[in-house]
């Protein structure tokens, strides 16, 4: 059951990314280009995605997951330095190429060599992150 749900969820997510045009780097960079030929499609994608999730979060208050287990605990709401620094680095890379992790995977079959190189570089960045975090959080540095 959990495996079938996971496969279906991945497939539905990939379908949504493909149909909305979010696997196209030009549409993502077009959204970020507020001072050029602004393409607001991404805002519709984000808005459309938030609506079902808003109701899903409501439902978590009164039930348990269908496949068992429990819902994730609410994280500490504090805004720390790593959150901001990470978002700045991520945003810079996102603007540079027009890909974030979901679309990078979804466009793998038609992104050519460039798409594959991006994915490998992203995985290397992810693998290096725990070390970068340990260095950022080293003793003696104020958070």
């Amino acid at each position: 059951m959990r495996m079938v749900i996971s496969l279906f969820v991945g497939g539905l997510f990939g379908t949504g990314l493909h149909l909305s045009g979010m696997t196209d780097t030009a549409k993502v960079q077009g959204f970020l280009d507020f001072f050029g030929a602004w393409d607001v499609t991404l805002a519709f994608v984000m808005g459309g995605a938030i609506v079902p999730m808003f109701f899903a979060w409501r439902l978590t208050a009164t039930r348990a997951p269908l496949a068992g287990g429990s819902f994730p605990a609410k994280p500490d709401p504090a805004l720390d330095r790593n959150l901001i620094l990470g978002a700045v680095l991520f945003g810079a890379g996102w603007g540079l190429v027009g890909l974030c992790p979901g679309p990078a995977l979804a466009s793998l079959s038609y992104g050519g060599l460039g798409g594959l190189v991006f994915l490998v570089a992203m995985l290397i960045g992810m693998a290096g992150a725990p070390r970068a975090k340990a260095w950022l959080d080293r003793p003696g540095v104020a958070a």
Partner: peptide, 21 residues
């Protein structure tokens, strides 16, 4: 297509949350 794709993405996320937690 933005809204259609977005709703699919949202439904996928909702199913992952409500189904698998």
């Amino acid at each position: 297509w933005g809204l259609t794709g977005g709703l699919m993405i949202g439904c996928a996320a909702a199913l992952y949350l409500l189904g698998n937690g």
